[in-house]
């Protein structure tokens, strides 16, 4: 267990996955104070979009058959579309509602999506052969790393850079940041609320789609429950990072991924099944030390 390069890649790739999911949640929280529990179901939905709807045990590739150049943008668009559609159908009508009511509706929406998937595809997990060659190991710095891990790390960096560019350099980005600071004020100053919110949902859905593609390639399976675990971790990362802070979400995503891998690597065998208990204890400790999160956005400071 002395191969630190190996450990680094394991941690960074898992962290990257969490970071991307956390970004998707933080984006929406930033503009409308909504903790979107349906995010995990967006991920599952995008994975299932790869295969033909049927309850048969053997999965037949559907969109998954398209070449990567087409497939990647297509799935990203599908992810964006389901997120925007859910905003249009549900969250738009709840803008003035209590955050708790919004959160519970997002959960109910996720429940609906999950059960629609169950009814359409059956309860048996499906196998997906998506880009198996990406799992071939490559040698980097003395570590044997599946190509996919490298891609995940690079993609995360790319996505973060692209988002940073979008937020800093474009009008939409400017409006989003303004909305995240103070939504009411931003609206009064002429920020186009619907454009900003729709944009945030589209980006969030596209991020869910990216996570879906990575998970499908990594695990080779599609299961209705696959988005749940990662969504919860992402949710926690969003809070630890400081709600509404996008860099914070990314940093916390990497942090949780890293700690999780380190615990798995260094805990003794008897304690290893308790890995998540240690992880969540650290989460509580972290919250107690920094209740506002690691990176506190100005908007989160209490205004009295």
């Amino acid at each position: 267990m002395t191969n630190f390069a190996q450990l680094f890649f394991d941690a960074a790739s898992l962290g990257g996955l969490y970071a991307m999911a956390a970004l998707g949640i933080a984006l929406i929280f930033g503009v409308m104070n909504l903790v979107n529990f349906a995010h995990g179901e967006y991920i599952a939905f995008c994975v299932f979009a790869l295969i033909v709807p049927s309850t048969d045990a053997v999965a037949v590739m559907f969109l998954g058959r398209a070449p990567a150049v087409l497939l990647v943008p297509l799935i990203l668009v599908i992810g964006g579309m389901i997120a925007v559609a859910s905003e249009y159908a549900v969250f738009r009508h709840l803008r003035n509602a209590d955050p708790v009511a919004m959160m519970i509706s997002s959960f109910a929406l996720g429940f609906v999506i999950r059960n629609v998937l169950l009814a359409t595809y059956g309860g048996r997990p499906k196998a997906i052969s998506l880009w198996p060659e990406l799992n071939t190991p490559v040698q980097i710095a003395g570590a044997s790393v599946p190509l996919l891990q490298v891609i995940v790390i690079l993609t995360t960096l790319l996505v973060v850079a692209a988002l940073a560019f979008l937020l800093k350099k474009t009008r939409l980005g400017l409006e989003m940041r303004a909305a995240a600071e103070n939504f009411t004020m931003a609206r009064l100053l002429g920020v186009r609320a619907n454009v900003v919110i729709t944009g945030a949902f589209a980006l969030s859905g596209a991020l869910a789609a990216a996570v879906a593609l990575i998970m499908a390639t990594q695990t080779g399976v599609a299961d209705v429950r696959m988005g749940g675990q990662i969504m919860l971790v992402a949710f926690i990362a969003t809070v630890i990072g400081g709600l509404g802070s996008l860099p914070g979400a990314v940093a916390a995503g990497f942090l949780i991924g890293g700690v999780s891998v380190l615990l798995q690597a260094f805990l003794p065998l008897e304690a290893r099944p308790f890995r998540d208990a240690f992880l969540y204890t650290l989460v509580i400790a972290c919250l107690l030390l920094r209740p506002q999160g690691l990176f506190v956005p100005a908007s989160a400071k209490p205004r009295v």
Partner: peptide
């Protein structure tokens, strides 16, 4: 050797690293 994981784990990279060691 022995190791554990959970069915829903997004990746079992560190378990594999242990086998390879």
């Amino acid at each position: 050797g022995r190791d554990t994981f959970k069915n829903g784990d997004a990746s079992i990279a560190s378990q594999i690293t242990r086998i390879k060691a």
